[in-house]
Nucleic acid binder design. Structure first.
Lengths: 188, 188
DNA sequence: TATGTTAGTGAACACTTTGTACGGTAATAT
DNA sequence: ATATTACCGTACAAAGTGTTCACTAACATA
């Protein structure tokens, strides 16, 4: 990839993330991004078709790593030193969110960001499906699996959202405990 | 209130609701509403400052009744014939949603409607706080009450949202059972 | 029924945002 | 060294926003 392309792409992502930290997604215009990134109008549209696609690609970049490593942990293929083998997938996700990806927290904390939340939930559903549903770790056999997977993933997103809204006072360990406490009916 | 005012107000609400049934909130412009309601531009702004305020007032109207009667039931002051006294507040809400307020379902089913969802959650939090938290019906004393109330209300909204997305195949009774099943850890 | 008040009309307004197009310039790859 | 490609600046039409204004019609009330 051309160095110029990489640079403007980074400039756009950077400007976008900075703006997301300031105000909600829907309050940000393409014009704002152009001004903040200090690029030409045509250049933006050469990279991204719309603002929504920009967010989608940013999500791809930010989530790609997190979900991939979470998948590895979920399947027991994670033999590194970052966390005990007994740590739950959720604790891993929380640590990852706190330590490495403050960008994501900006996105999450900005209100009205349903595209991002939808992306988060969809990623989690895949993870939870393979981790719990497929492996038979769900308790309730009488409820639809789809309902349970949806419940778990949206509850986790909501937990993270609550955490951020309140200033992230709790440690990842505490928060994982909260979440797993309210999930004991659902997960074995 | 002037008959003319009432009529245009109704025309605007009607047009807005109809449009919400067709496409998402953010895809609807003030221009669309004006055209659909067949009123003058200035008239719209005489009634509502912005599109967001219009949604807020619509929510006020739609939710006012539902939450009020749910509050009555929650406090055992509901002696009518509409449902057994033993029915849970959640079952009451689901019945209400299914039977009387298809407008709300339009709103909920249209994607990207976080203003509405936020309104729904906030209303529920108040209800759940007075119904469960104040009355000591929450199981877990070690977790923050605020976290639990948030968890219950957002899980309920998510359950309803799931229900609608999948075409409302389940009866209110079934859905209430689903919800209460995954909530047994949390609610006594 | 006559009268003052109020709400709606339609047109116009300045303004912002959007998405596209263009020739010119500078960085890049080979 | 040269051809390619990305970016720039500017301009453009189209659409939406929020406000103003004079005119008209509906309203409440006496």
């Amino acid at each position: 990839m051309d160095r110029r392309q990489r640079k403007t792409r980074e400039a756009i992502f950077g400007a976008f993330t900075r703006l997301l930290g300031k105000r909600a997604y829907h309050q940000i215009t393409v014009q704002d991004i152009i001004d903040e990134a200090d690029i030409g109008r045509a250049t933006f549209y050469a990279h991204f078709e719309t603002k929504d696609y920009l967010l989608k690609e940013l999500c791809d970049e930010l989530f790609g790593h997190i979900i991939d490593t979470a998948m590895e942990i979920a399947h027991g293929q994670h033999h590194h030193s970052c966390g005990k083998a007994t740590d739950s997938v959720f604790l891993h996700l929380l640590r990852h969110l706190q330590e490495n990806d403050l960008n994501i927290l900006y996105l999450l904390s900005s209100e009205n960001n349903e595209i991002f939340l939808q992306y988060f939930k969809t990623s989690l559903k895949k993870l939870i499906h393979s981790q719990f549903a497929v492996q038979g770790k769900l308790k309730s056999s009488e409820l639809p699996e789809d309902y349970l997977v949806n419940h778990i993933s949206s509850s986790f997103v909501e937990t993270v959202s609550w955490w951020i809204r309140r200033g992230m006072k709790e440690s990842p360990e505490e928060l994982a405990h909260y979440f797993e406490s309210v999930m004991t009916t659902v997960i074995k």
